[in-house]
């Protein structure tokens, strides 16, 4: 258990390092929803910069497998309708709210941005309530 928490902490530090590399190198805030939103909106000026980050993001778990010898665990039991509704809400909501766990969470909280603090409190609370209601309703 302690090893698992250590891995989580070190993994988190690497996420902070990744954000730092993008900021100090390219001057860009590593908000994943912002980067994806730029690609979706066909932001030509940033097409290659955003695209290279996404390619790296996809390669991350592949390198992890090469190093550790196993794919990272991922168990997902959500029903098809909820997967689709959840995906639509995450895509639309992160764009409307100008950020997700990376932009508002990792970057915004670190700079004590009032907007990011408000966003993180809101999406954490909404997620906790959603999981609680699903438990009450017997959904997983």
């Amino acid at each position: 258990m302690a090893m698992q928490f250590l891995a989580s902490f070190v993994g988190g530090c690497l996420i902070g390092l990744a954000v730092t590399v993008l900021l100090i190198g390219n001057g860009r805030i590593a908000g994943i929803s912002g980067i994806l939103g730029g690609l979706v909106a066909r932001d030509r000026a940033r097409l290659w910069i955003n695209g290279s980050f996404v390619v790296g993001l996809l390669l991350g778990p592949v390198v992890y497998r090469a190093v550790s010898g196993a794919w990272p665990a991922a168990s997902i039991t959500t029903s098809l309708p909820l997967l689709i509704v959840g995906g639509l809400l995450v895509g639309f909501g992160t764009r409307l709210g100008s950020g997700c766990t990376s932009g508002h969470g990792v970057v915004g909280l670190a700079r004590l941005s009032p907007r990011s603090i408000a966003a993180v409190v809101t999406f954490m609370a909404a997620a906790v309530v959603t999981v609680f209601l699903m438990r009450v309703a017997g959904l997983s």
């Binding site: 959500t78 809400l89 699903m134």
Partner: peptide, 17 residues
């Protein structure tokens, strides 16, 4: 926007990254 995102995140457990 953040509330909608939070609901979707809670439903599935996945955020954009």
């Amino acid at each position: 926007g953040s509330a909608l995102f939070g609901i979707g995140w809670g439903l599935v457990g996945l955020c954009p990254g």
